[in-house]
């Protein structure tokens, strides 16, 4: 099964993507864990693209492609913002003992990395497209 959608790189685009996630979780008959994962990946990755990939002066499209075959969920997210490979992002400091000492940068990315099985990323300098692919389940 496969579904795809394109939205603008704005908060209303994210709202549309979260509704899209609702509709396909039923269509794909996903397990509760898979539903959680899909929603989390969309929320965290797309929020990052809107906040850091694009800017107030420049926004562009965000494409989401969802594939589900053989109990494997694959999400492909494309944008034309600043290149960002989340695999290279340092993990947040989670060894905090009090709220004041906590560095929360990258918490959403940390969740994505913890929960999925495989992450790949490419940036095409010619077209400007970034493509992030995350996979949960049996790896190809």
């Amino acid at each position: 099964m496969q579904r795809q959608i394109q939205v603008s790189g704005t908060w209303s685009g994210l709202v549309t993507l979260l509704s899209f996630s609702d509709s396909i979780e039923h269509e794909f008959n996903l397990s509760p864990d898979e539903r959680y994962l899909m929603r989390l990946v969309i929320e965290e990755i797309v929020s990052n693209i809107i906040k850091y990939g694009y800017s107030e002066s420049y926004t562009g499209p965000i494409q989401l492609e969802c594939h589900y075959h053989n109990d494997t969920l694959q999400l492909i997210i494309r944008d034309q913002g600043c290149p960002f490979d989340l695999r290279e992002h340092p993990p947040p400091d989670l060894n905090h003992t009090s709220a004041d000492e906590c560095d929360l940068g990258g918490l959403g990315i940390f969740f994505v990395r913890e929960l999925v099985d495989q992450i790949s990323y490419t940036h095409d300098p010619q077209s400007g497209w970034n493509e992030l692919t995350v996979t949960k389940g049996r790896l190809p």
């Binding site: 929603r39 989390l40 929320e43 965290e44 709220a99 004041d100 906590c102 929360l104 918490l107 959403g108």
Partner: peptide, 19 residues
């Protein structure tokens, strides 16, 4: 049934406000 990082930040901000 669902929390993302934004929700954790909101709860932490609330905690920091009342402590």
């Amino acid at each position: 049934t669902f929390v993302a990082s934004l929700a954790l930040r909101m709860l932490l901000t609330t905690l920091k406000a009342v402590q």
